[in-house]
Design a protein around this nucleic acid. Sequence first.
DNA 1: CTATATTATTTCGAATTCGAAATAATTTCA
DNA 2: TGAAATTATTTCGAATTCGAAATAATATAG
Lengths: 136, 136
Amino acid sequence: MTDLKTITILFRATNTLTQEIAHQVNELGLSLSSFMACEALYHKGALSVAQLQSKVLIASSSLSYVIEQLKEKGIIDINHDEKDKRIRLCSLTQRGQNMMSEVYEKHVSAQRVRLDRLTPHEESLLQHLLKKIGLD
Amino acid sequence: MTDLKTITILFRATNTLTQEIAHQVNELGLSLSSFMACEALYHKGALSVAQLQSKVLIASSSLSYVIEQLKEKGIIDINHDEKDKRIRLCSLTQRGQNMMSEVYEKHVSAQRVRLDRLTPHEESLLQHLLKKIGLD
DNA sequence: CTATATTATTTCGAATTCGAAATAATTTCA
DNA sequence: TGAAATTATTTCGAATTCGAAATAATATAG
């Protein structure tokens, strides 16, 4: 192959999913980035800003803004790490926990509808191929 | 499968490519969206705003801004369609043409380095799988 | 121990993006 | 025909994102 058709298709597919998820989480009053941050905290517990940044695909300066939003909404708490005072640890508040447990399964099902157009074998193949081109 | 790992991997791969391309075209003084618009015009010739929007994955209001930027830089021209005066046709200026012919092959090669981690068979398989989950 | 480098995070101003409403031209159909 | 609906695009203000510089804490090397 010599053209960039694959990239076009990749961008289109990602855009379709992104739009769909963004639209759903906007109804909770969250941006996609905010939701991705909550998702990470929901699964991993408390995370530093840097750890969150490896999950939410935005610049660290943008993440500061997102964290501020979530704090203002009472969805996350921020505590300083005692060992290393540079680090700020983010975690879901009870309110944030509740929100995620109410919403997360619905979110997964909605996305699985799309993914289930693939057989399990196709899906793991897709993962494999994407990892190949996505690694730095 | 029951989780959203595939989406995580998809978003990561797209983000990696997006960042890489954005970084390259920023050196031309263009945003990723501006470059995608130029790419479309370079391949298809004159396009209406709506036609461009189907290529560049942003809201029409955002595209208006992008088009304005490109016009100010002297990269595109805008003419009204004679048959339907609502339509504004965008096309590359000579300067825009020159820029794209200088830059486009390099852009393709840089991206093909990544894509060539896949065999031709794997690449067309990837296209096929992405189309399946990406269609509306 | 101190100066220097590194790491974690935020601040700042500018650029980009969005959605909703506005504008303007065309089409439909009663 | 001519009012109403549709289509193409832009305007507007707000939200999000960015990169570069600043801040602050820790680690390292001499």
